[in-house]
Protein backbone atom coordinates (compact mmCIF):
# COMPACT_ATOMS: atom_id res chain seq x y z
CA UNK A 1 0.00 0.00 0.00
CA UNK A 2 1.03 3.61 -0.60
CA UNK A 3 0.44 5.77 2.46
CA UNK A 4 0.43 9.53 1.87
CA UNK A 5 1.06 11.22 5.22
CA UNK A 6 0.18 14.85 5.84
CA UNK A 7 -0.32 17.39 8.60
CA UNK A 8 -1.96 20.07 6.48
CA UNK A 9 -3.86 19.00 3.42
CA UNK A 10 -2.66 20.94 0.40
CA UNK A 11 -3.76 20.66 -3.19
CA UNK A 12 -0.65 18.55 -3.80
CA UNK A 13 -1.68 15.76 -1.43
CA UNK A 14 -5.15 15.62 -2.99
CA UNK A 15 -3.60 15.44 -6.46
CA UNK A 16 -1.31 12.61 -5.34
CA UNK A 17 -4.30 10.71 -3.97
CA UNK A 18 -6.31 11.22 -7.15
CA UNK A 19 -3.39 10.09 -9.29
CA UNK A 20 -2.92 6.93 -7.23
CA UNK A 21 -6.61 6.12 -7.50
CA UNK A 22 -6.54 6.67 -11.26
CA UNK A 23 -3.68 4.17 -11.48
CA UNK A 24 -5.65 1.69 -9.40
CA UNK A 25 -3.10 1.68 -6.57
CA UNK A 26 -3.89 0.65 -3.04
CA UNK A 27 -3.57 4.07 -1.38
CA UNK A 28 -4.46 5.85 1.86
CA UNK A 29 -4.30 9.55 2.67
CA UNK A 30 -3.61 9.95 6.38
CA UNK A 31 -3.68 13.00 8.64
CA UNK A 32 -0.88 12.21 11.07
CA UNK A 33 -0.58 15.32 13.19
CA UNK A 34 -2.35 13.88 16.24
CA UNK A 35 -1.10 10.33 15.88
CA UNK A 36 1.24 8.55 18.30
CA UNK A 37 4.11 6.72 16.65
CA UNK A 38 6.12 3.70 17.71
CA UNK A 39 5.46 0.20 18.91
CA UNK A 40 4.20 -1.11 15.60
CA UNK A 41 6.15 -3.63 13.55
CA UNK A 42 7.40 -3.19 10.01
CA UNK A 43 5.22 -3.58 6.95
CA UNK A 44 5.75 -3.52 3.21
CA UNK A 45 3.98 -0.21 2.67
CA UNK A 46 5.59 2.80 1.04
CA UNK A 47 5.29 6.00 3.06
CA UNK A 48 5.12 9.23 1.09
CA UNK A 49 5.87 11.81 3.78
CA UNK A 50 4.20 15.13 2.93
CA UNK A 51 4.06 16.86 6.32
CA UNK A 52 4.25 20.60 5.80
CA UNK A 53 6.70 21.17 8.66
CA UNK A 54 10.13 20.04 7.54
CA UNK A 55 11.25 19.12 11.05
CA UNK A 56 8.16 16.97 11.61
CA UNK A 57 8.53 15.35 8.20
CA UNK A 58 12.15 14.47 8.91
CA UNK A 59 11.35 13.14 12.39
CA UNK A 60 8.66 10.89 10.95
CA UNK A 61 10.89 9.67 8.14
CA UNK A 62 13.67 8.79 10.59
CA UNK A 63 11.25 6.91 12.80
CA UNK A 64 9.68 4.97 9.95
CA UNK A 65 13.01 4.08 8.40
CA UNK A 66 14.20 2.89 11.81
CA UNK A 67 11.33 0.46 11.70
CA UNK A 68 12.46 -0.79 8.33
CA UNK A 69 9.93 1.05 6.24
CA UNK A 70 10.49 2.63 2.82
CA UNK A 71 10.00 6.37 3.00
CA UNK A 72 9.76 8.92 0.19
CA UNK A 73 11.96 10.92 0.31
CA UNK A 74 14.50 9.07 2.46
CA UNK A 75 15.39 10.86 5.69
CA UNK A 76 18.97 11.39 4.52
CA UNK A 77 17.68 13.34 1.52
CA UNK A 78 15.37 15.42 3.70
CA UNK A 79 18.36 16.24 5.89
CA UNK A 80 20.38 17.44 2.92
CA UNK A 81 17.60 19.45 1.32
CA UNK A 82 16.27 20.93 4.55
CA UNK A 83 19.56 22.57 5.40
CA UNK A 84 20.78 25.09 2.85
CA UNK A 85 24.36 24.64 3.94
CA UNK A 86 24.17 20.84 3.70
CA UNK A 87 22.75 21.13 0.18
CA UNK A 88 25.50 23.53 -0.78
CA UNK A 89 28.17 21.21 0.61
CA UNK A 90 26.77 18.22 -1.29
CA UNK A 91 26.64 20.18 -4.53
CA UNK A 92 30.12 21.55 -3.98
CA UNK A 93 31.52 18.09 -3.30
CA UNK A 94 30.06 17.02 -6.65
CA UNK A 95 31.54 20.08 -8.43
CA UNK A 96 28.08 21.33 -9.40
CA UNK A 97 28.01 25.05 -10.16
CA UNK A 98 26.02 27.22 -7.75
CA UNK A 99 25.97 30.88 -6.79
CA UNK A 100 29.06 31.96 -4.84
CA UNK A 101 28.49 31.95 -1.09
CA UNK A 102 30.17 32.59 2.22
CA UNK A 103 29.47 31.05 5.61
CA UNK A 104 29.93 33.02 8.83
CA UNK A 105 29.23 32.25 12.47
CA UNK A 106 29.11 35.70 14.03
CA UNK A 107 27.72 39.13 13.29
CA UNK A 108 31.21 40.44 12.56
CA UNK A 109 31.88 37.50 10.30
CA UNK A 110 28.58 38.00 8.51
CA UNK A 111 29.42 41.59 7.67
CA UNK A 112 32.82 40.56 6.40
CA UNK A 113 31.16 37.81 4.33
CA UNK A 114 28.80 40.31 2.70
CA UNK A 115 31.71 42.64 1.93
CA UNK A 116 33.61 39.74 0.38
CA UNK A 117 30.68 38.54 -1.75
CA UNK A 118 29.92 42.13 -2.81
CA UNK A 119 26.61 43.94 -3.11
CA UNK A 120 23.86 43.15 -3.72
CA UNK A 121 24.21 40.10 -1.49
CA UNK A 122 21.48 37.71 -0.40
CA UNK A 123 21.15 36.62 3.23
CA UNK A 124 19.42 33.25 3.44
CA UNK A 125 18.30 31.32 6.50
CA UNK A 126 19.81 27.82 6.41
CA UNK A 127 16.34 26.40 6.97
CA UNK A 128 13.04 27.63 5.60
CA UNK A 129 11.01 27.79 2.46
CA UNK A 130 8.62 29.82 0.33
CA UNK A 131 11.19 32.61 0.14
CA UNK A 132 10.68 33.45 3.81
CA UNK A 133 13.24 35.72 5.45
CA UNK A 134 15.37 36.06 2.36
CA UNK A 135 17.02 39.45 2.35
CA UNK A 136 18.58 41.15 -0.64
CA UNK A 137 21.11 43.54 0.80
CA UNK A 138 22.27 46.37 -1.44
CA UNK A 139 24.95 48.00 0.67
CA UNK A 140 26.93 47.81 3.90
CA UNK A 141 24.41 49.81 5.92
CA UNK A 142 21.60 47.45 4.93
CA UNK A 143 23.82 44.46 5.76
CA UNK A 144 24.47 45.85 9.23
CA UNK A 145 20.72 46.28 9.79
CA UNK A 146 19.81 42.77 8.59
CA UNK A 147 22.58 41.19 10.65
CA UNK A 148 21.44 43.04 13.77
CA UNK A 149 17.87 41.86 13.21
CA UNK A 150 18.96 38.27 12.63
CA UNK A 151 20.84 38.34 15.91
CA UNK A 152 17.45 38.44 17.64
CA UNK A 153 15.86 35.60 15.68
CA UNK A 154 17.36 32.65 17.54
CA UNK A 155 20.14 30.13 17.14
CA UNK A 156 19.26 29.05 13.57
CA UNK A 157 19.93 32.59 12.40
CA UNK A 158 23.40 32.72 13.92
CA UNK A 159 24.63 30.62 11.02
CA UNK A 160 24.96 33.26 8.34
CA UNK A 161 24.66 32.08 4.75
CA UNK A 162 25.49 34.89 2.38
CA UNK A 163 25.04 34.31 -1.33
CA UNK A 164 25.93 36.39 -4.36
CA UNK A 165 22.93 38.01 -6.00
CA UNK A 166 22.49 36.45 -9.44
CA UNK A 167 21.00 38.76 -12.04
CA UNK A 168 18.44 36.49 -13.65
CA UNK A 169 16.49 38.90 -15.84
CA UNK A 170 13.25 38.38 -13.97
CA UNK A 171 13.04 34.60 -14.19
CA UNK A 172 14.52 31.37 -12.90
CA UNK A 173 13.81 27.68 -13.43
CA UNK A 174 12.22 25.02 -11.23
CA UNK A 175 12.83 21.46 -12.46
CA UNK A 176 11.31 18.22 -11.19
CA UNK A 177 13.22 14.95 -10.89
CA UNK A 178 11.39 11.71 -10.13
CA UNK A 179 13.30 8.49 -9.52
CA UNK A 180 16.44 10.16 -10.85
CA UNK A 181 14.74 11.14 -14.13
CA UNK A 182 14.20 14.83 -14.96
CA UNK A 183 10.52 14.94 -16.00
CA UNK A 184 9.73 18.62 -16.59
CA UNK A 185 10.54 22.18 -15.62
CA UNK A 186 8.92 25.58 -15.41
CA UNK A 187 10.35 29.03 -15.91
CA UNK A 188 9.17 31.35 -13.14
CA UNK A 189 8.80 35.02 -13.86
CA UNK A 190 8.18 37.79 -11.43
CA UNK A 191 8.69 41.53 -11.19
CA UNK A 192 9.97 40.79 -7.67
CA UNK A 193 13.45 39.35 -7.24
CA UNK A 194 11.93 36.37 -5.38
CA UNK A 195 10.23 34.31 -8.08
CA UNK A 196 8.56 31.53 -6.04
CA UNK A 197 5.10 30.73 -7.40
CA UNK A 198 4.07 30.60 -3.72
CA UNK A 199 4.84 34.33 -3.79
CA UNK A 200 2.98 35.08 -7.01
CA UNK A 201 5.59 34.20 -9.65
CA UNK A 202 4.12 33.22 -13.05
CA UNK A 203 5.04 29.88 -14.60
CA UNK A 204 5.66 28.78 -18.19
CA UNK A 205 7.17 25.63 -19.67
CA UNK A 206 10.95 25.17 -19.77
CA UNK A 207 12.22 22.43 -22.05
CA UNK A 208 14.41 19.92 -20.24
CA UNK A 209 17.16 18.71 -22.57
CA UNK A 210 20.88 18.79 -23.19
CA UNK A 211 22.96 20.59 -20.60
CA UNK A 212 20.03 21.15 -18.23
CA UNK A 213 18.98 17.50 -18.31
CA UNK A 214 22.52 16.32 -17.70
CA UNK A 215 22.93 18.77 -14.81
CA UNK A 216 19.72 17.56 -13.17
CA UNK A 217 21.00 13.98 -13.29
CA UNK A 218 24.20 15.15 -11.60
CA UNK A 219 22.17 16.94 -8.92
CA UNK A 220 20.27 13.75 -8.27
CA UNK A 221 23.58 11.87 -8.12
CA UNK A 222 24.81 14.32 -5.47
CA UNK A 223 21.64 14.50 -3.36
CA UNK A 224 19.79 11.26 -4.09
CA UNK A 225 16.09 10.96 -3.46
CA UNK A 226 12.86 9.90 -5.10
CA UNK A 227 11.29 13.26 -5.79
CA UNK A 228 13.25 16.49 -6.02
CA UNK A 229 12.48 20.02 -7.14
CA UNK A 230 15.63 21.81 -8.25
CA UNK A 231 15.79 25.61 -8.54
CA UNK A 232 18.27 26.98 -11.04
CA UNK A 233 19.46 30.26 -12.51
CA UNK A 234 20.39 30.47 -16.18
CA UNK A 235 23.43 32.72 -16.65
CA UNK A 236 25.73 33.61 -19.55
CA UNK A 237 28.27 31.14 -18.20
CA UNK A 238 25.77 28.31 -17.71
CA UNK A 239 23.34 26.97 -15.15
CA UNK A 240 23.72 27.57 -11.43
CA UNK A 241 21.85 25.35 -8.96
CA UNK A 242 20.27 27.54 -6.30
CA UNK A 243 18.26 25.13 -4.16
CA UNK A 244 17.06 21.54 -4.00
CA UNK A 245 13.69 20.84 -2.36
CA UNK A 246 12.57 17.48 -0.99
CA UNK A 247 8.91 18.28 -0.30
CA UNK A 248 8.04 19.99 -3.54
CA UNK A 249 4.80 21.76 -4.24
CA UNK A 250 3.76 21.34 -7.86
CA UNK A 251 0.17 22.53 -8.30
CA UNK A 252 1.30 25.48 -10.46
CA UNK A 253 3.63 23.38 -12.61
CA UNK A 254 1.26 20.79 -14.08
CA UNK A 255 -0.63 23.00 -16.53
CA UNK A 256 2.39 24.89 -17.96
CA UNK A 257 4.40 21.69 -18.52
CA UNK A 258 1.55 19.38 -19.48
CA UNK A 259 3.23 16.74 -17.32
CA UNK A 260 1.22 14.88 -14.70
CA UNK A 261 3.74 15.33 -11.89
CA UNK A 262 1.66 13.63 -9.16
CA UNK A 263 1.12 10.60 -11.38
CA UNK A 264 4.86 10.33 -12.01
CA UNK A 265 5.49 10.46 -8.26
CA UNK A 266 2.94 7.83 -7.25
CA UNK A 267 3.94 5.60 -10.17
CA UNK A 268 7.51 5.75 -8.90
CA UNK A 269 6.36 5.03 -5.34
CA UNK A 270 4.38 2.02 -6.55
CA UNK A 271 7.59 0.61 -7.99
CA UNK A 272 9.26 0.79 -4.57
CA UNK A 273 6.89 -1.64 -2.86
CA UNK A 274 8.37 -4.88 -1.63
Amino acid sequence: MLRILFTRLRQEEKLLLEAARRLGLDVALEDVKDRVWGGVGADDDVYLCRCIGHGQNLALARHLEGQGRRVVNPASVMELCGDKLATTAALEAASIAQPAYRLALSEEGALAAAEEIGYPAVFKPVTGSWGRLLAKVNDREAAEAVIEHKAHLGAHHQIFYVQEYVEKSGSDVRAFVVGGEPICAIRRESAHWITNTARGGRASNQVVAGELEELLRRVHGAVGGDFLAVDLFGTDSGWLVNEVNDGAEFRNSIAPTGVDIPEAVVRHCAGLGR
Binding site: R8, I52, G82, G128, R132, G247, A248, E249
Partner: peptide, 11 residues
Protein backbone atom coordinates in the same frame (compact mmCIF):
# COMPACT_ATOMS: atom_id res chain seq x y z
CA UNK B 1 -8.73 27.89 13.11
CA UNK B 2 -5.88 26.47 11.04
CA UNK B 3 -2.43 26.43 12.66
CA UNK B 4 -0.26 29.48 11.97
CA UNK B 5 2.58 29.08 9.50
CA UNK B 6 5.73 27.84 11.25
CA UNK B 7 9.32 28.74 10.43
CA UNK B 8 10.10 25.39 8.80
CA UNK B 9 6.91 25.04 6.76
CA UNK B 10 7.19 24.71 3.04
CA UNK B 11 8.91 22.63 0.42
Amino acid sequence: EAPQVQEDWGE
